[in-house]
């Protein structure tokens, strides 16, 4: 559906993109992840034909963004980062204008506007001027204008920024519901958002793609061995000694100690699962096991790891 090949973009002497390549399949939600200034917005602007790339090619629905911009523009809905809307227009007027310009006929426009306002939860605000709306509602109007023509491809630049937690959940649900019918590219630097909504993640940093995979794969791939946290009551030196002696343990790390209770992060050798053995040992020694939970590496950790690893090279 979307094919990006070796895209570069230079602003004067600054290389914003240094050869980005990725693909998005039909009906997929792709998360576009990267720190500020990584080139997320630049890539999106090239895909939406706002400006051309310096070199490389990008195709949306089979149309080249440079050769056939009108065909591409007809098939995308775009929500730019800071949601630029005409503040002096009423919501209905604005959505009607956008719908008409995207090719919806006069007969259908009313129905479409009502539907999209309903989907985005702005029906009760219909007659208001956009300038009077709060940030959250403006964001929804922005989403509504991207969705109005039911485009094949949606490009959303940080769609949940500035929303309250309830709205974030609603918008994420809305985006999730789009999967299958629409192809979505979603940029963000909020990582849980990606693991919640996206099927695939592209991580970019300083204009380069540094990883492409599903959120689950990324987690397991980079994490390596399993880590488990134990909260144990007992003499910390004894516990440390015993844990180090136990089978299949690579590393033990002691964290906070409080009233004889300490946290131990136990890293096992790859392929070893000692979730039964350690509690048994603790019981045998007469200590108290207060808590035990696996330490899953969050996308944040992966992200930071990837971005910093890249720097080290």
């Amino acid at each position: 559906m979307i094919e990006v090949e070796n895209l570069t973009k230079t602003y004067g002497s600054f290389n914003a993109l240094k050869g980005i390549t990725f693909k998005v399949e039909k009906g997929e939600i792709l998360g576009f992840l990267g720190p500020n200034g990584a080139g997320k917005t630049t890539t999106m602007r090239i895909l939406t034909c706002f400006f051309p790339a310096t070199s490389g090619s990008a195709r949306v629905c089979g149309f080249d963004v440079f050769e056939n911009p009108l065909d591409v523009k007809k098939r995308i809905g775009y929500l730019p980062e800071n949601v630029p809307l005409y503040k002096d227009m009423e919501i209905t007027d604005y959505l009607t204008f956008v719908g008409r310009i995207k090719g919806i006929d006069t007969g259908e426009i009313k129905k479409k506007v009502n539907k999209v306002m309903d989907d985005c939860g702005i029906t009760h605000m219909a007659g208001k001027l956009i300038g009077e709306l709060s940030k959250g509602y403006r964001q929804r109007v922005g989403l509504a204008q991207a969705l109005i023509s039911d485009p094949e491809v949606l490009i959303l630049d940080e769609p949940t920024i500035g929303l309250d937690p309830k709205q974030i959940i609603e918008i994420r649900q809305l985006i999730k519901n789009l999967a299958g019918r629409h192809t979505v590219i979603l940029s963000t630097h909020i990582l849980p958002e990606v693991s919640m909504t996206c099927q695939r993640v592209v991580i970019i940093n300083e204009g380069r793609v540094i990883a492409v995979d599903t959120p689950q794969n990324l987690t397991s791939q980079i994490q390596g061995a399993a880590k488990i946290l134990f909260k144990i009551e007992g003499s910390s030196s004894d516990v440390m000694e015993e844990l180090k002696r136990a089978r299949g343990i690579k590393k033990v790390e002691m964290k906070d100690t409080n009233n004889g209770v300490s946290d131990y992060i136990v890293e096992f050798e790859k392929g070893v699962d000692e979730r039964k053995g350690i509690p048994a040992l603790i019981v045998k020694k007469g200590w108290g096991l207060l808590e035990m939970r696996p330490m899953v590496m969050s996308l944040e950790d992966i992200f930071i790891k990837l971005v910093t690893e890249e720097k080290g090279v």
Partner: peptide, 14 residues
């Protein structure tokens, strides 16, 4: 200034 040109020029208009 308000950035609306970005949306306007990404609509299917010449």
């Amino acid at each position: 200034r308000s950035g609306t040109i970005e949306l306007l020029l990404t609509y299917p208009v010449r």
